[in-house]
């Protein structure tokens, strides 16, 4: 059972968390109130569905569901489960 360092709550077991997938995928157009810009629809489909899915270091989102409920960006090895870093997705804190 993984021990995930939450910048708010400290190291907590994995069953307190929910997994949010690859943290590196970014929508191709900036979210904006207008959003009227021409959308690259293929690029958007790729954003929705394509993943690097690395065997090794993976940057991913977790939510501390049964804790502080904050979203974290965690770097983890998908083979060894070694955890390299963890920080709040919103920016503050981290280690």
């Amino acid at each position: 059972m993984l021990l995930i360092p939450c910048p708010v709550c400290g190291e907590r077991p994995e069953d307190e968390f929910g997994f949010g997938g690859d943290a590196t995928v970014q929508p191709p157009v900036t979210d904006s109130a207008s959003g009227q810009a021409e959308v690259d629809i293929d690029g958007f489909a790729d954003y929705l569905y394509l993943r690097e899915n690395p065997k090794g270091r993976h940057t991913e989102l977790w939510v501390h569901r049964y804790g502080c409920r904050r979203w974290l960006v965690v770097e983890r090895d998908t083979v060894t489960h070694e955890l390299y870093s963890s920080r709040l997705a919103a920016g503050e804190g981290g280690e």
């Binding site: 929910g18 949010g20 943290a23 979210d31 989102l61 939510v63 569901r65 409920r69 904050r70 979203w71 709040l88 997705a89 919103a90 920016g91």
Partner: peptide
């Protein structure tokens, strides 16, 4: 709730 917090924290902080 979780989806909205995700948007607020990962994209629209």
């Amino acid at each position: 709730y979780e989806w909205m917090t995700r948007l607020l924290e990962t994209r629209w902080s």
